[in-house]
Structures are given as C-alpha cells and as structure tokens.
Computed example of a mutant assay.
Amino acid sequence: MNTLIVFTSMTGTTEMMAYALAEAIEKTGDEVVVKDAFDSFAEELTAFERILVGCPTWGDGDLSDEFIDFYEEMVQVDLTGKKAAAFGSGDSSYEHFARAVDILEEGLKTCGCDIITNGLKVDSRSCDEEEIQAKCKWFVEKLMIEKQGCVKL
C-alpha cells in the first residue's frame, strides 16, 4: 500500500512524528512519501491509498496557520474510499489537548476517507524523543491491522 504523509511542524515535534511514522511504515514493506504541507497540493492525495496528515495544535485548539491553506484545499477534494488517519502534537496544559488532530479527522471524513484508527496525539511538553518514537511505532501497528484485513478500528 502506498502512503502519503503530509505535515506541518512548529517546534519540530510533529515533523519528528511524521518521519518516525514513515520509517515504521517502510519497515512493513509499504512505500511512503513525506511532504511538508507548504510543498503539497491537496489533489496529490488522490494518488495514494493511505493518507496521514499531521499538524500541531495552535493556541487553545486550532490548526496551526501553516496548515490552514492545505486543509482548506483538502476538504474540497473527493477522497472517497481512501484510508486515512491524523496525528499531531499538543500541549496538555490547554483545555483542548491536541484538538488539531480531531479537526483533521473531521476534515478527512468530509472528503470521504475511511478513518483507520483514532488519531495519534503527543504531548510536546512531556514526551521525549524515545517516547514519541514508541508511540509512532504503536500507531503504525494499529494501521497495519487494517491493512491485513484483521479488524477495522
């Protein structure tokens, strides 16, 4: 299965997640393309079977400004039947922890995507690189369950 990961990052945490996810997916034998949202067009999503989008949460629950243009394009594209999931970082001191992940999932659903699993949220305040790597590996294991046809989460 080919996968496109589109992300934006402000502090580097979501970027680290994107590349950790890509590395774990590649270990399963799948092909992965990783792109920054600034260098992506939403129409590109149609060429991939699996789509992962990642964005940090800004303020008290918004998408970061760097992702908004891509998101607004994305929700206009028909992605019916594509497998998708969202990921991102947030700060647990805010009331709406990593809410950007929830917004991304809703946007993917609006496009017609089948959400493979609940989004991956990482606390940028308390997670170190090793913990982020472990969470990304676990997330990819959940993605692969769907690929094998065992369970749809």
Rank of each mutant, 00 (worst) to 15 (best):
G61D: 07
G61H: 12
L63T: 13
S64C: 13
D65N: 14
D65C: 11
E66W: 10
E66H: 13
F67A: 05
F67S: 03
F67N: 03
F67T: 06
I68G: 02
I68N: 07
I68R: 13
I68A: 09
D69L: 14
F70H: 06
Y71S: 07
E73G: 09
V75P: 01
V75S: 06
Q76L: 14
V77R: 09
V77C: 09
D78S: 15
L79Y: 04
L79E: 04
L79T: 07
G81V: 10
K82M: 07
A86D: 04
F87K: 06
F87D: 00
G88H: 08
G88V: 06
G88L: 01
G88F: 11
S89M: 01
G90V: 01
D91C: 01
D91H: 02
S92I: 05
S92F: 02
S92G: 02
S93W: 03
S93E: 03
Y94V: 05
Y94H: 12
Y94P: 03
Y94F: 15
H96D: 02
H96Y: 12
F97H: 07
A98N: 07
A98S: 10
R99L: 08
D102M: 01
I103F: 04
L104P: 00
E106T: 14
G107A: 10
G107C: 08
G107M: 12
L108Y: 10
K109Y: 07
K109G: 09
T110A: 14
C111E: 09
C111G: 00
C111A: 10
C113V: 04
D114E: 15
D114F: 06
D114W: 07
D114C: 06
I115W: 00
I115N: 03
I115S: 02
I116T: 12
T117F: 01
T117R: 08
N118S: 11
G119W: 07
L120Y: 04
L120N: 02
K121I: 01
V122P: 03
D123T: 07
D123S: 04
D123H: 02
D123C: 01
S124I: 03
R125T: 07
S126K: 12
S126E: 14
S126F: 09
C127M: 13
D128T: 05
D128S: 06
D128A: 05
E129G: 06
E131D: 12
E131Q: 15
I132M: 03
A134Y: 08
K135R: 15
K135G: 02
K135M: 15
C136G: 03
C136W: 09
K137T: 15
K137Q: 15
K137G: 06
W138Q: 15
W138C: 07
V140G: 00
E141S: 10
E141W: 06
E141T: 10
K142L: 12
L143G: 00
I145Q: 04
I145P: 02
E146I: 06
K147V: 13
